[in-house]
Amino acid sequence: MIEIIAGKYNYWIYISLMMIGFYAMIAKGNLIKKIVGLNIFQTAVFLFYISMAVREGSTAPILLSRAHGALTPETATYTNPLPHVLILTAIVVGVSVTAVALALAIKIYRAYGTLDEYRIAKLEQDAE
């Protein structure tokens, strides 16, 4: 049991982070806190991708020639670069989502004068 937890601790961390983020998105009434939760949620997935790429004792995937006298390509182990690249894209996306979400929060605040979910729902009900 301990081996499972310790051996794959990166997964446990990402799952815990995801759940924390998810909790914030669902349980928090404040719209900004929800966005924070959303960010934690996304970051957890980024960590999952990054940790997936790592190998024990590996290095950056830069091709080194013998002339530099260091490691040879045959003996070196590389970190898989592709997940990093993918996650760069995902980070860009995440930032955009956050930006749109914050912009919407500002619009909501201007329209309702509050960022509390329940108060907004009540205001909407009263308006109808």
Binding site: Q42, V45, Y49
Partner: peptide, 23 residues
């Protein structure tokens, strides 16, 4: 605007799930 915000939150959860599936 509120509808859009809710759509964004749930939509992003959906997209992140897709991303996890891909991963």
């Amino acid at each position: 605007v509120v509808a859009s915000y809710n759509y964004l939150i749930l939509g992003t959860v959906g997209a992140v799930f897709v991303l996890l599936g891909i991963g």
